[in-house]
Each structure stands twice: as structure tokens, then as C-alpha cells.
């Protein structure tokens, strides 16, 4: 019961947080020089004051700021994020079209980075001076220091342009026809390089942290107790030590969702991945305010949901969280 109550409190906080994000975004847009009417008139090749006023009235831009904010928040509650004049589509629809591609990229990269990162971390902690350990150190330095878009371009040059192992751009090949598995393989092939590019940063982060916490845990009292019980090394490491070093790694992963999305924006740009990042970039250039607001909202939502999931996983692993 206590666990569920605590989790509901977290959800309540998340909703408040999300509302705050909405208010900040909306106010920022409002503060910026120029508004939707200016942008529309520009795209029409200029307009006189009357038409501008007409557009402002149509979009409700002549109302006081707080009223506009209130009606925007009200609309968001009904999942109406406004209308994009640039794409001539409701923003919600626009975003829902693009969201799956981004989620696929972000979650595949996160999950793979986490799993492989933990594996590498454990192996290198078992032999702190071994080959894997040095590899993890190097990988961590590389992953942290290389700009993600540059890594992506290098991979493109290496594996798509020179040896044609993987497609150059996009998420699927429109010329392909066939059943589910044909398309599955097609998407998977497109996904490989973007996921490697995006995952490399986080793989570096997680493997390094996992190595460090494993080393620390392996020196702790309860590991000595486990050894004094005569347990096999295998049990000591994979049961007692690993479970204890997972929490910090998962906590870190939870904090990275915002960074993963940022990375995804760049990776999508490099690989022309049809996700939110590409949409964001285009709408920012076009100053398509409703779409920009919608994307900011959805990415904050993804981060918050990611955090909630992390919180839930941590509670499952560690009985100490949430009980006082």
C-alpha cells in the first residue's frame, strides 16, 4: 500500500512539473519578439495591419496573456495542442506521427547502452587491470569526448557510403514490400547506425559508472560476509554485488533521458531519421509556434515518464526506497 501511495505522490508531482514546463514554454514564446501573425504574414509575402489584426483575432492572440495561457493549458488537458499552419495539420496528429520513430531510437539506444554497459562494467570490475577494463576506460573517454553528430557522420562514411552495409538515411525503404518480418528487418537495418551513434555516449557513461560502483561494492562488508559464507565467486559477483551496483547505474540512466533526447535530435539530423527531432528542427526554422510548443511538451513528457519508470524499477530492486 505504502509503495502505491508513494508512487501516486510521484505521479502528482510529475503532473505539477509538467504544468510548470507548459507555463514556462508558453511564456517564453510570448516574450520572444514577433508572433504567429508575423510569421504567417511573412510566409504570405507581407501583409498590412488590418490583415495582421484579423489573423491575431483568429488565433486569439489579441486576448490578455493569462487568458491565452489558461486556454492553452485547458486545451492541452484535452490533448489539443493547437494547429500547425506550416504543416496544415493539428499538432497532436503531427507529433503522434513522428513520436514512434523517436521513441524507437531513444529506448533502443538506452536499453542497449544499459545492458551492454552493465556487462562491460561487471567484467572489467572483476579484473580491474584486464583488457576489458582498459577497453572500458578508453570507450568511456571516447564516448564522452566525441561529438555525437561527428561519430554519426564517420559511421555513415565507413559503413554506408564506402561498404554499403547499412542504408544511408531514413527509417524504412519505401520500395520494399512484404510481410511484417520483411519490414521489421528493414527498420532494424536502418536503426543500426543511429542506435550505435546515440548509444555510444551512454554506453560509455554506464559502463564506467558500473565499473566504479562494482569495485566499490566488491570492497564492502557484506561482500566479505558472502565470501566468509563460502559462496562461489559467481554467486558473490552476479548475485550479491551486481544487484547492489545496479541502483546507481539505473539512477544515472534515469537522469539521462533529457540528454538522450538531445542526442536524438542530432542523430536524427545526421541520419534523416523521421522523428520528433527532425520535426523540431524544421518547425524552429519555420517558427511554427504551436508545433514547437507541442514538441517541447512531448519531450518533457517523455523525460518525466522515463523518470517515473526509473523510479519504479529502483523501488523493485531496492526495498529501502520508499519505506522510512
Amino acid at each position: 500500500m505504502k509503495v502505491i501511495e508513494n508512487f501516486l505522490i510521484r505521479v502528482a508531482y510529475a503532473v505539477i512539473l509538467l504544468t510548470a514546463v507548459l507555463i514556462l514554454n508558453f511564456s517564453m514564446m510570448h516574450l520572444a519578439p514577433g508572433d504567429v501573425a508575423d510569421t504567417i504574414s511573412q510566409s504570405m509575402g507581407g501583409a498590412d495591419k488590418e490583415i495582421l489584426d484579423q489573423i491575431r483575432a483568429d488565433y486569439g492572440l489579441d486576448r490578455p496573456f493569462l487568458i491565452q495561457l489558461g486556454s492553452y493549458i485547458g486545451n492541452v488537458l484535452t490533448f489539443d495542442l493547437g494547429y500547425s499552419f506550416f504543416y496544415n495539420t493539428p499538432v497532436t496528429e503531427l507529433i503522434l506521427q513522428r513520436l514512434p520513430a523517436t521513441l524507437l531510437l531513444v529506448f533502443t539506444a538506452q536499453v542497449l547502452a544499459l545492458i551492454i554497459g552493465v556487462m562491460l562494467g561487471v567484467i572489467s570490475a572483476r579484473r580491474p587491470n584486464g583488457l576489458t577494463s582498459h577497453f572500458v576506460t578508453l570507450l568511456a573517454l571516447f564516448g564522452y569526448s566525441a561529438p555525437v553528430f561527428w561519430t554519426g557522420i564517420l559511421l555513415l562514411i565507413g559503413f554506408s557510403l564506402n561498404v554499403h552495409w547499412f542504408p544511408v538515411a531514413g527509417m524504412r525503404d519505401v520500395t520494399i514490400s512484404g510481410g511484417f518480418w520483411v519490414h521489421f528487418v528493414d527498420v532494424a537495418r536502418h536503426l543500426v547506425l543511429p542506435v550505435i551513434t546515440l548509444g555510444s555516449i551512454f554506453l560509455a557513461l554506464y559502463s564506467r559508472l558500473c565499473r566504479a560502483t562494482m569495485l566499490e561494492v566488491l570492497g564492502s562488508d557484506y561482500i566479505r560476509t558472502a565470501k566468509a559464507k563460502g559462496l562461489h565467486d559467481r554467486d558473490v559477483i552476479y548475485k550479491h554485488a551486481l544487484k547492489n551496483s545496479l541502483s546507481p547505474v539505473i539512477t544515472l540512466a534515469g537522469l539521462q533521458f533529457s540528454a538522450v533526447i538531445s542526442g536524438a535530435v542530432l542523430v536524427e539530423a545526421v541520419f534523416s531519421w523521421p522523428g520528433l527531432g527532425t520535426l523540431a528542427f524544421q518547425s524552429i526554422i519555420a517558427r511554427d509556434t504551436p508545433t514547437i510548443l507541442g514538441i517541447l511538451f512531448f519531450s518533457a513528457l517523455v523525460v518525466i515518464v522515463g523518470n517515473l519508470l526509473t523510479d519504479l524499477v529502483l523501488r523493485l530492486i531496492d526495498p529501502r526506497i520508499g519505506t522510512k
Binding site: 512539473l17 509538467l18 510548470a20 514546463v21 514556462l24 517564453m28 514564446m29 520572444a32 519578439p33 537522469l255 533529457s258 540528454a259 533526447i261 538531445s262 542526442g263 535530435v265 542530432l266 527531432g277 523540431a280 528542427f281 524552429i284 526554422i285 517558427r287 514547437i292 514538441i295 517541447l296 519531450s299 518533457a300 523525460v303 518525466i304 523518470n307
Partner: peptide, 23 residues
Amino acid sequence: MRITEFFQVLPTLLFSMVIVALF
């Protein structure tokens, strides 16, 4: 700490892109 949490949730790069594009 609530304020910090708030800034933690913002999608950093997207947010900066918007600031730079708008201002």
C-alpha cells in the same frame, strides 16, 4: 530542489535551440 528538478526535465538541446532561434 523543485526548481532544479524542473530544469532537469527540460529537453536541454531542444530548449536551447528554441531560445537561440527566438531570441
